[in-house]
Computed example of a mutant assay.
Amino acid sequence: MSDFTSQLQMLLANDPEYRAAYERTWDVLTDAETRAQSTIDALEAQLERDEAALEALTRSAASLPDGTKVFRAADGSLKTQEGTDVSHLSDHVVWRGDEPSWEDYRDQQARTENLRGDLDAWRYYQVETLGHARDRLSDEDNPPSVEELDEIQRDIEAKMPQAPEPTEPAEAADIAVSPAAKIEIPAI
């Protein structure tokens, strides 16, 4: 190892099979890192939109005298943001007529929570799987074996989270005024 400063350099210079496996693993890693960062960026942007839509729904909701936000459900009951039935307090609510329904709020809340979960999964993958792979490939004094390089590639592929389906957050203007079905107006 006199001409080489590390075990990795020696392997790369003298073992073409190792060099090919090592370069292939770096390619898989860099492709996965690019995809992960792109997905994380898109999820963060979507989460920002979904959180804004959820906040708009909350602001548009009716309120009890103490400020608690309430939504009317399709069955006519009155629910708080947490889903507590407060129908017995309906006489204390002033309705404007354009409040979002409980179902609109609940659906947007679920979309937002699912998106947070997707984002967390991708961040975990980026740090734990890809970060570990990068650390192993960068270890010049104790480089991974060809078998470990294959294992790293398999881990990168197998542990990659599913790409979430894009969803559009509910917009306050698109929320149904009542539990009745929306009426589609054809364009002229």
Rank of each mutant, 00 (worst) to 15 (best):
E99G: 07
E99W: 01
E99T: 09
P100W: 03
P100C: 03
S101F: 01
S101Y: 02
W102Q: 00
W102Y: 04
W102S: 00
E103P: 05
E103T: 12
E103L: 06
D104H: 10
Y105T: 07
R106I: 01
D107H: 11
D107W: 06
D107K: 12
D107C: 07
D107E: 15
Q108F: 07
Q108M: 08
Q109A: 14
Q109Y: 10
A110Q: 12
A110E: 09
A110S: 11
R111K: 14
R111D: 10
T112Y: 05
T112G: 07
T112I: 03
E113P: 03
E113Y: 00
N114E: 14
N114M: 08
L115E: 05
L115Y: 00
G117L: 06
D118R: 00
D118S: 11
D118I: 02
L119R: 05
D120T: 10
D120H: 05
D120W: 07
D120G: 02
A121D: 09
A121T: 12
A121R: 03
W122A: 02
R123I: 06
R123P: 02
R123D: 02
Y124P: 00
Y124W: 12
Y125A: 03
Y125G: 06
Y125H: 08
Q126Y: 14
Q126L: 13
V127C: 05
V127D: 15
V127P: 01
E128T: 13
E128Y: 15
E128H: 14
T129E: 06
T129V: 15
T129L: 03
L130I: 08
L130S: 07
L130D: 09
G131M: 03
H132K: 13
A133T: 10
A133R: 09
R134H: 11
R134F: 13
R134N: 14
R134P: 09
R134C: 15
D135W: 12
D135S: 11
D135F: 15
R136K: 00
R136N: 01
R136M: 08
L137V: 05
L137K: 04
L137H: 02
S138H: 13
D139G: 05
D139P: 02
D139F: 11
D139A: 13
D139H: 06
E140P: 03
E140C: 05
E140V: 12
E140Y: 15
E140Q: 14
E140H: 14
D141K: 13
N142V: 10
P143C: 07
P144G: 05
P144W: 02
S145H: 10
V146N: 01
V146F: 04
V146W: 03
E147K: 12
E147M: 09
E147I: 04
E147T: 08
E147F: 09
E147A: 13
E148F: 09
E148D: 10
E148K: 10
L149P: 05
D150Y: 01
D150I: 04
D150F: 04
E151G: 14
E151F: 08
E151Y: 09
I152N: 00
I152C: 03
I152V: 08
Q153D: 03
Q153N: 01
Q153V: 11
Q153W: 00
R154D: 11
D155P: 03
I156E: 00
I156T: 04
E157P: 03
